[in-house]
Design a protein around this nucleic acid. Structure first.
Lengths: 113, 113
DNA sequence: CAAAGATACATAAGAATCCAATGCATTGGA
DNA sequence: TCCAATGCATTGGATTCTTATGTATCTTTG
């Protein structure tokens, strides 16, 4: 099963921030592969979605970047800034809370009609 | 806490379908109030989001409608069609699975670097 | 050694979805 | 009598993702 794309909306930024929190620094392609691997192919982040998101995170000062080379192959490493770290905690907490709320909604069987 | 709007995206349709499954039939305003009440004001569905969603569900044949009057006050009741019922199970299962995946992602603390 | 696939960055046009604002009308209570 | 709540709905705009495309390098395989 691959999740319908609408489900991914709104969670991408939080996923990226969380991965960066856990891994110190990562580059774009690595993020797509890591997510694919961790979710057993259920979530496949496309590059067209990821790169704009990373750029926004950078503009907002939540991540810093370092460009490095493996031979001639460029890699742009992303790391959380101090603001990024606190923002990550916020976003992760919010998403965890949201999921609890959703779980509650989905579990409801009967209603006072 | 009110969830940032991005989080609601992608889950609205499933929430509405699930509520209709549990309650047999509901009208628009009732849905907004029920969600607000069930989530302790954390999820507030705006009418500009709800009505287009309901109309799409109707176009897709997932819900049927009945217009009724309380005095002169019109109420449009929505009910699941047979397709709507099976679609609801699909969507709820998908969302439950997605939430498990997200929970897994958010719980990860250390990574093989 | 040539070709194909994987790695690695990026942008652009369009679709989808939600938000904020607005509008109209009715009902109930202060 | 007036305001808040109820109840429907639409519109313009913003945000966010998808699909498609582009460039280039590295690695593996026939």
């Amino acid at each position: 099963m691959i999740y319908s794309s609408e489900l991914i909306k709104g969670t991408l930024k939080t996923i990226v921030l969380k991965l960066l929190e856990d891994n110190n620094r990562m580059y774009g392609y690595e993020i797509t592969q890591r997510v694919k691997e961790l979710t057993m192919d259920k979530i496949q982040i496309t590059e067209g979605a990821l790169y704009p998101t990373l750029h926004v995170l950078e503009e907002d000062g939540l991540v810093t970047t370092e460009l490095e080379y493996n031979g001639k192959r460029a890699r742009k490493y992303y790391s959380l800034s101090p603001e990024g770290k606190s923002k990550t905690k916020e976003k992760v907490n919010e998403l965890a809370d949201f999921m609890n709320t959703m779980k509650f909604l989905l579990d409801i069987k009967t209603q006072t009609a």
